[in-house]
Design a protein around this nucleic acid. Structure first.
Lengths: 191, 191
DNA sequence: ACAAATCTACCTACTAAATGGTAGCCAAGA
DNA sequence: TCTTGGCTACCATTTAGTAGGTAGATTTGT
């Protein structure tokens, strides 16, 4: 079976996103996958290896999603809205964003993992900056905003909103934050 | 001396905000405060007791700050801006928000701690909602926004921005996010 | 006033359980 | 036969927490 590794990545992601990187152990993961603890080391010799694989897989999934949004949607604000809805899975499963969770533990994080999550955020910010610039150019995003700070603000708002949902509960909160965010970017009569 | 306890709270807060709740140990704290590990248990019998005291102290500090902002500033957006600048200490010291860090680890968190951080966020959102409503009433905040979702959005944006700074580095990012946020709330010609 | 009792704030020295990780064995499939 | 993917059995270290002691301050009884 090839997919013990995949299963390990799946369950490890759930554990990290729900409890933090230092909040889960190989023993927890072994329980979840129903394999002996030592066998995990066959697939991921060290916990750092596992973390790196987790970030790489997560990042790759977002790459696909970002491309799909750009290809399937043309309106600037609708693209941002679709980007925001990518976080909804986390809200519904009561899991944080993998990279946000890891970012919080930066003080204990192996350096290469830290580099990986920085790249993740940089990539998202660059994507959003482009989407916002294009939106301003075609009039779908209001002209008063600056693409670079606003791109950062979009990521910050969504990451923060996801974080809040974990303690405040009820995805209504996330959705209303997302629409408040989109409203602030839309060109139109309001404002 | 009464302030071993205070020193413990101070150093524990730095450890939690930098490395997460499960990312620090009584041994780390003992090193930082230069007392023996077992002595910490005299002041805080369990790690949960310590976490609760940490949240209570943090929450109390914010209470003072929120009152001071409402007392000293009348303009709605200026109040939000001042609120945002409360996070700057964290940005400069490279520490996350205590409650955000704990929120990430909710899966392993003792339940009473979780209740405490939920109360923290609820309080901030309620405070912001009131500030926004008053701002709309006196014209300092633009009328198009809804106070409740926008209050949530403000907390989310700032928490997210602080989180991002920890991996992206340089407080310029946080400041620009804060001004983008304030711009989106200001009543005026733009939009 | 003064001695006995109690309290404060720390200590050394432990413990059981959990941590990430290693060594070496074994069954099945190419 | 050799690789794959598990296994048992260990390891040193670290974890939160406990037991019990002690020097010094404070309170109390006479």
């Amino acid at each position: 079976m090839r997919d013990t590794r995949t299963e390990l990545l799946l369950q490890a992601e759930i554990l990290v996103r729900g409890r933090g990187y230092s909040g889960f152990s190989y023993a927890d993961l072994a329980d979840a996958v129903k394999i002996r603890k030592a066998s995990i080391h066959y697939h991921f010799p060290t916990k750092t290896d596992l973390a790196l694989a987790l970030v790489a897989a997560y990042d790759a999934r977002y790459d696909v999603a970002l491309d799909a949004i750009r290809a399937g949607i043309t309106d600037g604000v609708a693209r941002i809205d679709a980007y925001g809805r990518l976080y909804l899975g986390g809200v519904e499963d009561d899991l944080g964003c993998l990279c946000a969770v890891l970012a919080v533990e930066r003080g204990t994080l192996p350096e290469p993992v830290c580099t990986g999550i920085a790249a993740f955020f940089d990539k998202h910010i660059a994507w959003l900056e482009r989407v916002l610039s294009e939106g301003i150019a075609d009039g779908s995003v209001r002209g008063g905003i600056l693409p670079s700070p606003s791109a950062r603000m979009v990521v910050a708002t969504l990451e923060g909103a996801l974080l809040l949902e974990r303690v405040l509960a009820g995805s209504a909160g996330f959705r209303s934050t997302l629409s408040a965010l989109c409203d602030s970017l839309r060109s139109g009569p309001a404002g």
